[in-house]
Computed example of a mutant assay.
Amino acid sequence: MNPLTEKQIRASFVNASRREVTQAVLPDLTDLPWDRMDLLGWRDRKAPLSAYVVLELDGTPAGVLLRASPAPASGRRRSAMCSWCRDLASVGATLYVARRGGGSGRAGNTIGTLICEDFSCSRNVRRPPTSAESGDGIEAVADQVVARRITELRERSAQFIRDVAATA
């Protein structure tokens, strides 16, 4: 992922009002490992159920405002697999819902998906494969598994952004 500026991030949102974009609390962008990131995702410190994801879509930054599902009354979430990185071993996935773009979103239409609670998808797809994933553990096979995971993460997350932006 190419490094992004605050201005680029704020201009990228396809489903947020100007007020929501202005009020968004952005993460510190100075020390991010941009070369190992496929997306930038974060929770808003001031509004814990608000979250944001920005990624490159057709060479241009595209972002969505998300709402996290509240924690269950019991305090325990069920284990769930992230639909983007397909990882189960990390912190777990949370249901994030995004208002659709345009008139559809203004009418209250939303779309949701399970995403790693802490948006660690880029890190998860780069972990070494298990023996079940790579077979005999040959390094070339391991590199292919990681490359495939990265490609699939980019495809699935980009499709979600496209679905949010679709106004029909």
Rank of each mutant, 00 (worst) to 15 (best):
residue 64 V to H: 08
residue 64 V to Q: 10
residue 64 V to I: 13
residue 65 L to K: 10
residue 65 L to G: 02
residue 66 L to I: 05
residue 66 L to E: 07
residue 66 L to W: 06
residue 67 R to M: 11
residue 67 R to K: 12
residue 71 A to D: 05
residue 71 A to Y: 04
residue 71 A to C: 02
residue 75 G to S: 00
residue 75 G to E: 02
residue 75 G to P: 01
residue 76 R to L: 11
residue 77 R to Q: 13
residue 77 R to I: 08
residue 78 R to V: 12
residue 78 R to F: 14
residue 79 S to C: 03
residue 80 A to H: 09
residue 80 A to W: 12
residue 81 M to K: 14
residue 81 M to S: 13
residue 82 C to V: 09
residue 83 S to L: 10
residue 83 S to V: 07
residue 83 S to R: 10
residue 84 W to N: 05
residue 85 C to K: 00
residue 85 C to T: 00
residue 88 L to N: 01
residue 89 A to T: 14
residue 89 A to L: 14
residue 89 A to V: 12
residue 90 S to H: 08
residue 90 S to L: 05
residue 91 V to R: 08
residue 91 V to I: 07
residue 92 G to D: 10
residue 92 G to S: 10
residue 93 A to R: 03
residue 94 T to K: 08
residue 95 L to T: 04
residue 95 L to N: 05
residue 96 Y to P: 03
residue 96 Y to R: 11
residue 96 Y to T: 04
residue 96 Y to W: 08
residue 97 V to Q: 13
residue 98 A to R: 01
residue 98 A to F: 02
residue 98 A to D: 00
residue 98 A to L: 01
residue 100 R to F: 08
residue 100 R to A: 11
residue 101 G to W: 06
residue 102 G to R: 04
residue 102 G to D: 09
residue 103 G to A: 14
residue 104 S to F: 12
residue 104 S to H: 14
residue 104 S to W: 14
residue 105 G to V: 15
residue 105 G to D: 14
residue 106 R to L: 15
residue 106 R to F: 10
residue 106 R to M: 15
residue 106 R to D: 15
residue 107 A to Y: 13
residue 108 G to I: 00
residue 108 G to K: 00
residue 109 N to F: 04
residue 110 T to K: 10
residue 111 I to V: 15
residue 111 I to N: 07
residue 111 I to H: 09
residue 111 I to M: 10
residue 112 G to H: 03
residue 113 T to C: 04
residue 114 L to V: 11
residue 115 I to V: 11
residue 115 I to P: 02
residue 116 C to A: 04
residue 116 C to N: 07
residue 116 C to W: 03
residue 117 E to H: 09
residue 117 E to W: 04
residue 117 E to Q: 06
residue 119 F to C: 07
residue 119 F to P: 07
residue 119 F to E: 09
residue 119 F to L: 08
residue 119 F to G: 06
residue 120 S to F: 13
residue 121 C to E: 06
residue 122 S to T: 08
residue 122 S to A: 12
residue 123 R to G: 07
residue 123 R to C: 11
residue 124 N to V: 00
residue 125 V to G: 04
residue 125 V to S: 06
residue 125 V to N: 06
residue 125 V to Q: 12
residue 126 R to A: 15
residue 126 R to G: 07
residue 128 P to M: 00
residue 128 P to L: 01
residue 129 P to D: 05
residue 129 P to H: 04
residue 129 P to G: 05
residue 130 T to P: 02
residue 130 T to E: 12
residue 131 S to K: 11
residue 132 A to N: 12
residue 132 A to R: 14
residue 133 E to P: 06
residue 134 S to R: 02
residue 134 S to K: 03
residue 134 S to Q: 05
residue 134 S to F: 03
residue 134 S to T: 03
residue 134 S to W: 04
residue 135 G to A: 09
residue 136 D to L: 04
residue 136 D to H: 07
residue 136 D to S: 06
residue 136 D to T: 04
residue 138 I to V: 15
residue 138 I to F: 15
residue 138 I to N: 15
residue 139 E to C: 07
residue 139 E to A: 14
residue 139 E to Y: 13
residue 140 A to T: 13
residue 140 A to L: 15
residue 142 A to K: 05
residue 144 Q to G: 01
residue 144 Q to A: 02
residue 145 V to G: 02
residue 145 V to F: 02
residue 147 A to M: 01
residue 147 A to L: 01
residue 147 A to Q: 04
residue 147 A to F: 00
residue 151 T to W: 05
residue 151 T to D: 07
residue 152 E to F: 00
residue 154 R to K: 15
residue 155 E to T: 11
